[in-house]
């Protein structure tokens, strides 16, 4: 259910849903986005987030009141996220060792073996709630409580591209080299952001991600295919 509709200046509207992070609320955001995603209504861009949809419009083609009416008409109400078909991107990940230098340390902190942490991290299908912060950075929900881990006190100055990490109750992938405080547990050979590729961004918010443990040899093979742009992204349905 839409809770509030308010102007974000004279060219955008913020639509807010229930003030919580969960799959149902997030699914409503994407349902509204989808129902408004057609040409001719004056909307030029939409930015979906956890529980809000930001809609940019061309003030020459439409206005706040006209769009508010259109949004109300398309209020998705409660969407059942459970029934929707999920598109799941398979993300190969080389866990531990040099690729995930915090994994060994986490075993003591979490009282779990490396293989147990890897199993818990790779068995979950994560929803991409939103993207932001860095190009192609995914905010994933659904990390198993047993492997929640606090961020580093002092962030690293450079985390390499492709690093897979845990930060508090979140997990994700660094799409470009960046400073950051997440605990690094592995690395994916996939490029979540590549400005030279036809689709610069690998995935879409509203879709899902599942990590798949790979060996170092597999990692190298996939990475070289990715570099040559011959890698075919794998999807599963759930």
């Amino acid at each position: 259910m839409i809770s509030t509709i308010s102007p974000s200046g004279d060219r955008a509207i913020t639509v807010e849903f229930e003030n919580e992070i969960n799959e149902e609320v997030n699914a409503e955001v994407y349902a509204l986005q989808e129902s408004l995603d057609y040409p001719g209504n004056g909307i030029v861009e939409m930015v979906p987030t956890f529980r809000s949809l930001l809609i940019f419009y061309d003030p020459n083609l439409t206005g706040y009141h006209r769009l508010t009416k259109l949004i109300r008409m398309n209020d998705p109400g409660r969407v059942s996220a459970a029934n929707a078909k999920k598109k799941v991107l398979i993300v190969p990940c080389l866990y531990g060792g040099e690729s995930g230098e915090d994994l060994a340390g986490l075993t003591r902190e979490l009282q779990l073996s490396e293989s147990e942490i890897i199993r818990l991290h790779s068995e979950t299908t994560y929803r991409i709630y939103m993207m932001g912060f860095l190009p192609g950075f995914v905010y994933l929900g659904g990390l198993n409580k047993k492997i929640w881990a606090p961020r580093l006190k002092t962030p690293r100055t450079l985390i390499p591209e492709g690093s897979v990490g845990i930060g508090g109750n979140q997990t994700g992938v660094y799409p470009i080299g960046s400073p950051g405080g997440w605990r690094l547990i592995g690395r994916t050979p996939l490029k979540f952001y590549d400005p030279n590729r036809k689709n610069a961004i690998l995935c879409k918010a509203g879709e899902y991600i599942k990590f798949q443990p790979v060996s170092e040899r597999e990692y190298i093979k996939i990475r070289s295919d990715v570099e040559a742009d011959t890698w075919k992204t794998e999807y599963a349905e759930a």
Binding site: G9, N19, I21, T49, S52, L54, F56
Partner: peptide, 10 residues
């Protein structure tokens, strides 16, 4: 707040 979208001018 729970992170949401920003515009030029927010």
């Amino acid at each position: 707040i729970i992170s949401d979208g920003i515009v030029f001018g927010s």
